[in-house]
Design a binder for these strands. Sequence first.
DNA 1: GATCGCATGTAAGTGGTTACATGATTTA
DNA 2: TAAATCATGTAACCACTTACATGCGATC
Lengths: 189, 189
Amino acid sequence: MASANRTEFAVLGLLALGARSGYDIKKMADDALGHFWNESFGHIYPILKRLEQRDWVTKSVEPQEGRPDRKVYALTPAGHEALQEWFASPIEPVPPREELLLKLFLGPLTPPAALIEQVEQYRAAQREDLAQLDGLVKQVEREESNNPGLPFWLLTVDHHRAMLRARLRWSADALTRLRSLIGGNVPVS
Amino acid sequence: MASANRTEFAVLGLLALGARSGYDIKKMADDALGHFWNESFGHIYPILKRLEQRDWVTKSVEPQEGRPDRKVYALTPAGHEALQEWFASPIEPVPPREELLLKLFLGPLTPPAALIEQVEQYRAAQREDLAQLDGLVKQVEREESNNPGLPFWLLTVDHHRAMLRARLRWSADALTRLRSLIGGNVPVS
DNA sequence: GATCGCATGTAAGTGGTTACATGATTTA
DNA sequence: TAAATCATGTAACCACTTACATGCGATC
């Protein structure tokens, strides 16, 4: 049971929104789901094959010249059923692995400057991420204003924004605390 | 380059805090790092062997009766050096994979009730997690008040708390938005 | 009498990435 | 002329989990 391949359902779900090729799935994942999901070709293509063997999708080949034939996959009723089951099934929590927090926990082992540097880089990364996301939202709201899926997408965006802002607040606080920790330990020069 | 085994450094870091056995590392990870880090025996033991081969740690055997000998590992100077390098090196971002957001994005494909159920379960999980963490903090502040590492540990806790609170706020908002989305689409019965 | 804590490890499997292999067409 | 876009796939590798194997002693 345990893990129950989530990528399979990501692929299946994108196909449920409309028939697509492996290449298209990758592109859509990068463009629309980029802030909360990630896929690689090396994973997508084998999964597509598996889904077809399981009769959750069907393949139709569009011949092309000068490049490999385009293979478009579409959901079968069995695929729809599997997807609905997945929708209703509980989400299993992913075991956490946060490298920054690991470094922070081990903080007493390293010069404080290294630690502060790490937190500052983290902070800069969140800020940049937030700015980029805001830009994306503006663009999408312009171009996809008629897309009925837009409100759902915005829900995912706002989740990410909430996380980024929380991390920005935390890191500001963490920096002042780290600096005062040093102040308390460092001898007056 | 790419991934550069983070668990190796987690193990190395815990050993830098004090010589320990594989069993102890696992216990410590569960107890103190549980909210941001995760390790399994099946991973720890082979890593310990690797670290020893690389001369980053040394092994000393404490014979025992009625159970396997205890093998205590301690950092070497080379291990310390490797750890310091890791401290200074940038953190590579982990590609995201958030199943709830995937379901939300695919929202138009499923009955809204299923979606709301998922968000409510998520919300309940965050709440429970927060309560449990608060309990742990109280206990640790009592028992480890003299531990010089405490402020660093609290930094990691506050990160987690900030995340949990942000998710609670987001999910409350998401639920009202989801319900109004339904309201707008469901025919009057 | 069952479960938990102590204590080690291995083998099999999963989920995933990266690099490789191929190559035409379009855009900067 | 370099690069991105289109388009498929495979092979090698990596990080990690789970299940298995073993078994004593203490606690519930």
